[in-house]
Structure formats: structure tokens, C-alpha cells
Design a protein around this nucleic acid. Sequence first.
DNA 1: TATGAATGAGGGTTCATTCAT
DNA 2: GATGAATGAACCCTCATTCAT
Lengths: 212, 212, 212, 212
Amino acid sequence: MGAVKTKRMPRAVREQQMLDAAVRTFGQRGYMAASMDEIAELAGVSKPLVYLYLNSKDDLFTACIRREATALTEAVRGGVRRDLPADRQLWDGLRAFFAHTAAHPDGWSVLHLQARTHGERFASEVAAMRTELVEFVTQLIVVAAREARRDPDLPEREVAGLAEALVGAAESLAAWANVTPGVTAREAATTLMNFAWAGLGGLLDGRPWADA
Amino acid sequence: MGAVKTKRMPRAVREQQMLDAAVRTFGQRGYMAASMDEIAELAGVSKPLVYLYLNSKDDLFTACIRREATALTEAVRGGVRRDLPADRQLWDGLRAFFAHTAAHPDGWSVLHLQARTHGERFASEVAAMRTELVEFVTQLIVVAAREARRDPDLPEREVAGLAEALVGAAESLAAWANVTPGVTAREAATTLMNFAWAGLGGLLDGRPWADA
Amino acid sequence: MGAVKTKRMPRAVREQQMLDAAVRTFGQRGYMAASMDEIAELAGVSKPLVYLYLNSKDDLFTACIRREATALTEAVRGGVRRDLPADRQLWDGLRAFFAHTAAHPDGWSVLHLQARTHGERFASEVAAMRTELVEFVTQLIVVAAREARRDPDLPEREVAGLAEALVGAAESLAAWANVTPGVTAREAATTLMNFAWAGLGGLLDGRPWADA
Amino acid sequence: MGAVKTKRMPRAVREQQMLDAAVRTFGQRGYMAASMDEIAELAGVSKPLVYLYLNSKDDLFTACIRREATALTEAVRGGVRRDLPADRQLWDGLRAFFAHTAAHPDGWSVLHLQARTHGERFASEVAAMRTELVEFVTQLIVVAAREARRDPDLPEREVAGLAEALVGAAESLAAWANVTPGVTAREAATTLMNFAWAGLGGLLDGRPWADA
DNA sequence: TATGAATGAGGGTTCATTCAT
DNA sequence: GATGAATGAACCCTCATTCAT
């Protein structure tokens, strides 16, 4: 069942077919439960060819992570115009993020679940991408503070924690939106914006929550 | 290595030793990479005994999930006094949550990473616990709205999304706190409270962020 | 075929059965061409059991080498009485050597052919045994020189070369005797003694061959 | 790496390049561990071309054996003048033998180690060459006996054994000389001549070693 | 209660070999 | 004359699981 058996394709094409099959299989079965046999069959190719082009299960998985991470990063970057105000950038970025993860659930599973669960080697591969997103958000927070002309010296770690929380919330909402019928990317983005932007606003206004 | 070899223990005790070993192994190696051999050895028991008591790898893993989920739920519940104001309840609950996950990283890994990555069967097992937490938070949001005497009819799905985002942010911060040296449970809780409570406040004040 | 299927043997016994099968298979097929499947079947055991006891193909081969090397060394040592004259010791040693190699052709193949052809790791394992034999012969030559009360200061490397040549001749004759019908251990030993002892005698008499 | 990539060579030349690469690879890795991939790459050629010219791994290996056996045989034959006395012929032949094996260690490895370790088919291929050498030596022994005008009717099998031993000693010394630094072909030849010629002399003088 | 002995099934990887151009 | 694309078959190894005691 897999792809139609087309013979003698140039290497670059076959490689993409293999990566497609691999992302799907890894995303649905998990890294370890996915067998090279299944991937090869889904790609419409014999196993040795997979090894010839992608080298090993490890390398194949790494290639998947890289491809999907790049795709997601570029989707977010491409959805944002850096000349707009910070809140608008965040809003656009979130929409792009939710739209992309919803459109590529297996890729998102590879990045969000599988890569972080099977060894430092893979985890650090996604970590790079996540760092980029967190830094993007961090910058937006700083810019927002400056735009609001309010005291911009939030302690650095505080900002890092906030960004981390925001990205985490986004990831969680992405998963939630994927399984809750009828939730659109726009809606998820709205929910998060409401939550986050107001929270940031309160912070920047100097109204932090304080325990007794 | 592993537990001291003591013979002829009552069944209940042996079972806990096995679960301890299993949680540790599953948490560190991952579900599939963990071998029954390693678990049995770490528990100081022969493999057939593990099967006699816990039946299969699947069942063993399920037992781990249940035990750790219960422990986490109870830790959070036990940290909260339902007669205090909503914000204080959230704050106490978060501190308990971060403290427990920091104290039981393998258990947290089982719940947060492993259980969600290896099939619907296990995922739904954690989902129950997560739902409980999300519902707890949901209720707090509603109560907070009521306490603030402001228009309490936030649309239900909106609230669900917020709660989901908050729990996701908490989970993400828990992981972040586990790998960032020097971040305490209290600090993580503070960061999240600042973020979330202010955000909620803004929402409840009727100042949602709105796109153009 | 292979051993009769007997169930539930103690480990030590099974291990010997496996080594028997392995020596036979390695000796006849060669290290690389021998498959673990074939060895397991010949031993009347499933493959996993072979791995459980012997660990890996490498380790299994090493165990074969060690067992056969020890057996050969002990056969030679056991055939010699150190209180007899040097020529008699050599004669006895050679007979024991030829007898043992003829009785265990697969073991001899493992030591003489296979172990030296598949990597330094195995080669050095046999080298130890060979060194022992060469040193035994070396000593005999020195003793013979002393007994003959002739100038005993043969240059050391010269002696080493002679011993090497003698052992090589013996190994070669062992192979020859194994494939030439009707050649007994005694006969091979005689041939070599005639060849070697007279040669040594000439040397010790100070009548070396000299080129123009 | 490998040969310089030159296109469109005449077949004979390409074949030699392939055999060069094959001898080197077989000699260093061993017959089974050598892969056609490696050989083709080292030869600077694509794999199908190797198959086109040499047919199969088996045939390629056989071709290597034949080429190297012929080269060695001719080196020895070319080093000897049949009109000189027998001892001189032996001495010259040994020098040529040791010089050639030292100059072509991979070829020697193919003949001495690999060909004898991987099935009757290959073994018999070298056996032919070895027989030639053994016969050459046998003849020299007979001639020596005649020259010495002593009773030339040594029993035939006795002579065969002696020749076998001599060739075995030579082979062993060749390996020894290859790994012992500073041992020249001349030196190895001297050692063996001293050993062998004197031994033969003793024999021909009618002074065989005799056991009790 | 507890375990040493044993295996069916399957996974990752590699290799000699061929087709189609 | 020469090669990029492709595969059937096999091999080493591991694992969850059970039997017999």
C-alpha cells in the first residue's frame, strides 16, 4: 500500500519520499516502534536503498528532525513581518505556528514528542529550533516593554522563564487544538494572545502577582 | 547494585520495589529501550517473578503510570487548601506541582514524556490525570471571576483553552526548571503566577487582546 | 541433525556443547562464513541461548581459540618429561603435537588458519600459545648446545629464527599429515626430527652452510 | 583515494587496476570481509564494471590467486640458475622467495593465509603452486644426494615430507621476517639454509636421528 | 515464594549482484 | 566502455515471554 511503485527516480526525489514515509511512521509509531521495514515499504522502496541514502535509523531520524524543524521555523518566520508592532508579530507568529503544526501533525509529533524522548542526541537537535523560537519570543517581550515605554529592565531570567512558559503554552495548545474538533489555528492563537499579552501587560505595568 | 538482595519478601513490598525499578528505568531509558532484564536486575529479582506479579511489560508500564499519576495528583491536592482564595490556591498548587516533579524526575518523565509517546493506551491513562488538573484550574478561573464579581460568563471553550494553556505552561516550566540549574520550585511558581494571574486579570477586566 | 535434543542441561555442560559445535563450524567453514544459526543448530540449542552464554560471535570465537590453545599446549606439555635429554624431549613433544592436531583437526584449523586470518585481536590470542611453543623449542636448542658442550653462544636472533623455522615446519607437516592418507604422528615426528636434529647438530658442530 | 580516475582505459589495463585493488583489499581485510564496494572504489571504477570484467567475487579472488601465484613462482624460478650446484640453487631460490614475499605482503597474505582459509576451491588453486615449489625442492634434494654420490634411494615419502617441512619452514620464516623489524631476505635465507642444508647433509650421511 | 534454562519472532544492517541507460 | 539506481537474501543480535522445578 504505500506510494505507487515508480522505478528509477533520481536520488533527490527518492530521498524526499523516504523522509515523507519516515516522518509519518516515526510520528505515528514512535522512534523505536517504527521499523525500517515499514518505512521502506511505505516509501515504496527496498530497505537497502534507504540505508544507501540515509545511512542508518539514527541518521534517518535526525534527517527527519532537521527537515521538520526547518519547515516549522520557516513557516513561523515567513508568517511574521518584522516591521509591525510587537503584539502583531506575536499574533502572526502564533497563527503561523498553529497552522503549521495542525497541517503537519506527524512532523509536529516527531519534533514535540519523539525527538525529546529518545536520547540527548536527538533532543539537542530540536533544542536548537526551540531555542530559536524562545529567543524570538524573548525579543518580542523586550520590544513590547520598550514600546510601552515602561521600565524595560525585567531581570533576564524572568524574561527567559516567561518566554519558556509562553512557548510551552503554545505547544500544549497545539496538541490540544489537534485533538479538539473544531478548534482553528486562529482560535488557538486568540486564546493564547489573550492569555499572554494581558499577562505581559500586567507585568510591564508593574503589577506582578505577589504571594503573602 | 540495585536493591539489596533480600529473600522472601511479602508480595506488596516486592511489587513496590519492582515499580521503583521500573519507573527509574522507563524514565531514564524510555519505554521501548527499557528491557525487562534491566528492570528485574535493578529490582533485585528474577524476571519470572516480575511477570508473575506484573504480568507483562505493558501492564507494568501502566502500573507505573497509575502510581506516578496518583502520587502527583495527591501531592498537588495535598498542597492546596480549598478554603483559601483562588489565587492562593493556584499558587499553592503550582508550588506543590513543581516541587513534586522536581523531586521525582523519573516519574515525571514517565508521565510527561514516555506515556504520551507510546500508543493511545498509555496516553489515555495520563490523560485522565491531566484532565483532573485542567479541571482544577478551570474551576479556579471560574471562582476567580466570581470573586472578582465581574461578568462570569466567559465562554466555556475559552476557559478550557486557558486552563489548557496554563497547564501546558506549567509542564513546560517544570521541564525547564529540571534542567536549568538553580531554578527552584518557588521561582518557577512565581514566574508562572506572574504570567498567568495577570493575564487572567486582564481578561476578566474585559481587556482582551484583539487583532485588527 | 547435530546433537540429540536434550533439554534443561546445566550451564557448564551446554557451554561445552556450544564450544564443540563452534569449533567444528569455525574450523570447517571459517570464521566469517560460519553463521551463529548453524552453530546453534549443531549444538542443538536456540540462538539466543548461545548469546546468553557466550555473548557474541567474537567472544565465542575467542573462547574457542582459548580452549583449543590450552588443550594443545597441555597435550604437548603433558607428553614431555623435563628430566630427559633435550632430543628426547623434542621428539616426545613433536609426537604429542602431531597426535593432538591429527585428533582435533577442526581445533587445529581454528588455531592455525582461522585465528590468524581474522584480525589482530584473534591473532594475538594464538600468538601467545605459539610463543610458548617457540620458547619451549628455543630452550631445547640451548640445552642441546650445552649438553653437547659445544660453543653455546649462538646469537640470540639466530636461535629465534631456528625455533621459528622448526615450529613452522611442524605446523606445515601437521597440515600435510592431515591430508596425506596413512601418515602417522610418529612418522611425521620422525621426519621432522631427522631434518631438524641433524641440522642443529651441524650448526652446533660449527659447520654452517655458507654462501659464496 | 584509490587510483586516479582516468576514463576509457583499454580493458587489459583496467583489469590490472582491479586486480591490484582486489589483492590489496583481500590481503588486508580477508576474503569475506573485503567488499566489492571497497574494491571497486579503490580501483577507481564502478561496481558493475568489476562484474563485467571479473564476473563474480569468487572469480575475482581466483584471478588474484592465480596472478600472485604465477608472480611468486616466476620470481623464484627467475632467481635460480639450473646449471649451478644444488645448494646454490636452493640458496638462490630461498632468497628470491623471501625477497618476493617481503616486497608483496598483500599478495603473500592472499596466497598463504586467505586462499587456504576459504574453501577447497581456493585452497586447491594455491596447492598447485605449492606443489610446484615442493617439487622443485624435492628435486634439489635428490640431486644433492646424487652429487654427494651417496646412496640416493631415500624413500620417496621421506623426501616428500622433508620438502614439505622445508617449504613450511620457509613460509613460516617469511611471515616471521615480515613482522620482525630488521630481518632481511638474505638473513632469513641464511637461517634456513643453515638449518636445512646441514640437516639434509646429516641425513644423506646416513646419520638419521633415531628414537629409543 | 522464587528461579535457572530456554526460545519465537523480529529488528537493524550489510552484501553480492543486476537492470536500464 | 561505463554507471546510477535498485534489491533478495542473509546475518548478528536482542527482547518479551514461558517452562520446569
